[in-house]
Design a protein around this nucleic acid. Sequence first.
DNA 1: CATCAAAGTAACTGTTTAGTTACTGGCCGG
DNA 2: CCGGCCAGTAACTAAACAGTTACTTTGATG
Lengths: 253, 253
Amino acid sequence: MTNSSALFAFYNLLIRHYERWEVIEKGKLMEGAGRGGKTTAKRRPRQRVLQRDPERTRAAILEAATQEFAENGMGGARVDAIAERAGTNKRMLYHYFGDKEQLYLHVLEEAYVGIRTAERALHIGDRSPEEGISDLALFTWRYFLKHPEFLSLLGTENLHRARWLRQSVRLKELHSHLLGELEQVLERGKKAGVFIASADPLNVYLTIASLGYFYLSNQYTLSTIFGRELSEPDNIDAWEQQIVHVTLASIKA
Amino acid sequence: MTNSSALFAFYNLLIRHYERWEVIEKGKLMEGAGRGGKTTAKRRPRQRVLQRDPERTRAAILEAATQEFAENGMGGARVDAIAERAGTNKRMLYHYFGDKEQLYLHVLEEAYVGIRTAERALHIGDRSPEEGISDLALFTWRYFLKHPEFLSLLGTENLHRARWLRQSVRLKELHSHLLGELEQVLERGKKAGVFIASADPLNVYLTIASLGYFYLSNQYTLSTIFGRELSEPDNIDAWEQQIVHVTLASIKA
DNA sequence: CATCAAAGTAACTGTTTAGTTACTGGCCGG
DNA sequence: CCGGCCAGTAACTAAACAGTTACTTTGATG
């Protein structure tokens, strides 16, 4: 047994070095690589400008993973594809993020941090209650429009019943700010007599998010079955107006 | 070359029959099988009552595939898992449906036929315009509530930009009935002065569907980030009222 | 009751996959 | 200016995967 396994190891060594020679000698390097052209400098490493940059590599992996998970879901995403998109190697991915699941969780957390951070900059309480609500509706819609990968990640995470989001420790207190500010705006509107007394912050937010989310995330099947291209600018604009109209109509006194 | 391949074939034969002997002799049959206990009768096939039933097998595969695709998406679904759930064999799945993609398309088509068929039985034009709209909203919401697998399949299909639905020939004329009937109801309401002139059939349907779809399909992440269990009966009932309220408020004159 | 096509089975195959290992080479503190 | 550490690489592995093959069983038909 020891003999044959030693023989096998030697055979592997042979194969390995033969293949390497083949690669170097025949110039077979990276035929179908990613978009970036930064993969050539293998034979003369000195040509590269910056070779070791942990921060940049980490960020590239996170960005690539966001794309891959958004396009293919957790089940369909491929670790090799992420590494290639990031212009790096699978080993680095495991080095920085542990495994596929933890990488996915990082991507998801980053996406939530993104929208909640942008939301905070809104200050919906600064103008009249009606303008505040319509600002929130417009912001949410336009953020969804600009960040389809966020919607996609939400869909994937819900397919798995929030299996990974539940494990997140970073996200517990991230969302309370939104509901708090929204409640203040609604209260001011009720006192001013422009909003009905039953208007509820969570319901209002869910209404706004529903109308934006469904239109965008289901646009492909909807366009197909109803024979109307929902992604056309005119239809997009019309739906933006519909969202503001519906939201305000549902709480107006 | 011929010699060694004959040797290889003989080796395979040996392995194969050794393994079969091992399975039969040592009683290794189906340790971790599915829920059903109907897998034992392997050594004595005569014990089974009804062994050949194409219709039932086909239906079982379709049902099992619906569950598997809904739970795991197209990328995450496993062909072996579908066969096991159906209490049959992978070979049958390929026999009846060709391959994984065609099976998925059948599941998707069946799901759409389901909701559109139930919708036709509604006859929303039979009562007052307002009751018609509220009936449609209630029906849609309750159908979504009863058929989470439909919502899940929609999500999966949209993740892939309706790649398979677009190929479907069965579904082109299935959906026009809904918009036609809805338009008639809206027209009657406008003439009676209870609906605004700008009320549009597609917008109204999208509004109804949005509110139901988002709440249910995103309930897991929403419950997590807002710390309120959306699946609780009280919250479900409250949202049903919200849907009817919002829909009517958005078109009332 | 022999035949034969369709229904059904389980083992097999080539490929893809997440994750690992063994190695290389640049860079910073001494 | 050098030695060890760490970013980075590519080849490897075991398991899982979709799809196939070779074969057996069943029941309707002559």
